[in-house]
C-alpha cells in the first residue's frame, strides 16, 4: 500500500501500534480538536453497523471533518449492480479518507488497490476489523498501565471470533500469557495455537472456566457463544451456560482485573457484573472513539503531538 491505509492490524508494527495508542491517549485528554477542518471523510457502510459507524463519524466530527457516505447500501447504486471498484473510484473524487465496512472478505484491501485515497477498514466480513483491536489494546493499556507481563483469558467463541484472533496477533508483540477457554467445537484454531508455539507465546487451553483461571487473570475477554455456530445442537445446549460470567465468580479475582467484551453481549455476562468496578466493557466501547481518532489522523498522515 502506497499510502497510510489501515486494512489489517497485522500490517502495523509494534512501534506503529504504540504510537497509535499514545495518540489515542492524547485524544482522550482532549477529544475536540479542529485539525481536520476542510477535510471530507467518507463512511461507506456496504453492510449496516450502527455502532461502528457512529463511532467513526463521531471521531471525524470531533476532529472537525465533514462526513459523507451511506449507512445502507440498499439505497445506493451498489444495489443497482455498480461494482465495488466503481463506487470507490466515484467516492475518491470527493473524499480525503474512506472508512469502509463490507460484507465481503478482502474488500478493503481491494479498495486500496483501486484508489490513492487512504482507506480504513471498518470490518470486512469475518476477516479484519483493526479499529476493534486498537480499542481493545487501548483498554488493556489504560486499565493495566502496560501491555507486557499480563495474563489474558479469552472466553467463549475462540473459533470464529475474529476479534480474539486479531487481538492475539497484536499482543504477540508483547509478553502476554494467554488462557483460551472454550468448548471443543469453538476452541482456538490450530493455526493460532501453532503461531503461539512458534513465537514462544505462553498459552493454556481449558474447557473449564475455572476459579483458578479467573483468579489469575488480569484481563478476561468475553465473547458471544452463538447457537448458529454449532453443527451439534446437543453440544450447544450442553455448553451454552458454561462460559457465562456472573458477579459471584469474581469474588476472589485480582484487584486489577478488568472484564472486556466487544459488545453486543447476549447472556454471557450477567447484569449483576455491570456494577462491579471490574466491568469495563462500556468504557471499552467509548475508548473506540479515541482509537478511531488516532487511526483517522494516521491515515491522513497528520502527526498529533500534544
Amino acid at each position: 500500500m502506497a499510502n497510510n491505509s489501515i486494512v489489517s492490524i497485522n500490517d502495523l508494527s509494534k512501534e506503529e501500534i504504540l504510537k497509535l495508542l499514545h495518540t489515542a491517549s492524547l485524544f482522550e485528554a482532549n477529544p475536540n480538536r479542529h485539525i481536520l477542518d476542510g477535510k471530507v471523510v467518507a463512511t461507506l457502510f456496504f453492510e449496516p453497523s450502527t455502532r461502528t459507524r457512529l463511532s467513526f463519524e463521531t471521531a471525524a466530527n470531533r476532529l472537525g471533518a465533514r462526513v459523507i457516505g451511506f449507512s445502507d447500501p440498499a439505497a445506493t447504486s451498489t444495489a443497482k449492480g455498480e461494482t465495488l471498484k466503481d463506487t470507490i473510484k466515484m467516492v475518491s473524487n470527493y473524499a480525503d479518507l474512506i472508512v469502509m465496512r463490507h460484507y465481503l472478505e478482502g474488500a478493503a484491501l481491494y479498495a486500496t488497490e483501486v484508489t490513492d485515497v487512504p482507506v480504513i477498514n471498518a470490518g470486512d466480513g469475518a476477516h479484519q476489523h483493526p479499529s476493534q483491536t486498537m480499542l481493545d489494546l487501548y483498554s488493556i493499556l489504560k486499565t493495566q498501565g502496560r501491555l507486557d507481563d499480563l495474563t489474558l483469558t479469552m472466553v467463549g467463541d475462540l473459533k470464529y471470533g475474529r476479534t480474539v484472533h486479531s487481538l492475539l496477533m497484536a499482543l504477540s508483540h508483547f509478553r502476554v500469557r494467554f488462557n483460551f477457554v472454550a468448548c471443543k467445537e469453538l476452541q482456538m484454531p490450530r493455526e493460532f495455537i501453532d503461531f503461539c508455539g512458534k513465537n514462544g507465546i505462553e498459552y493454556h487451553e481449558s474447557r473449564e472456566f475455572s476459579p483458578e483461571i479467573i483468579n489469575s487473570s488480569d484481563i478476561i475477554y468475553m465473547t458471544r457463544v452463538q447457537r448458529e455456530r454449532f453443527t451439534d445442537l446437543m453440544e450447544y445446549e450442553r455448553v451454552k451456560d458454561l462460559y457465562n460470567l456472573n458477579n459471584a465468580m469474581l469474588a476472589d479475582s485480582r484487584p486489577n482485573l478488568r472484564i472486556l467484551h466487544p459488545l453486543p453481549r447476549v447472556g454471557e455476562i450477567a447484569e449483576d457484573v455491570d456494577d462491579n468496578p471490574k466491568a469495563y466493557y462500556f468504557q471499552q466501547a467509548k475508548n473506540g472513539l479515541y482509537a478511531r481518532q488516532a487511526m483517522i489522523c494516521r491515515a491522513l498522515g497528520i502527526e498529533v503531538t500534544d
Binding site: T83, L84, K85, H102, Y103, L104, E105, G106, A107, L109, Y110, D124, G125, A126, H127
Partner: peptide, 28 residues
Amino acid sequence: KCVTRNQPIPTRFNVVDRGPVRVRCHYC
C-alpha cells in the same frame, strides 16, 4: 465470501509452501 468470488477481480494467490503446494489468497 471472498471479494474475488463476488466482484469482477482477478485472483491473486501467494505460494506459501511448495511441497505439497499451499496457496494463500492475497485478499481474504
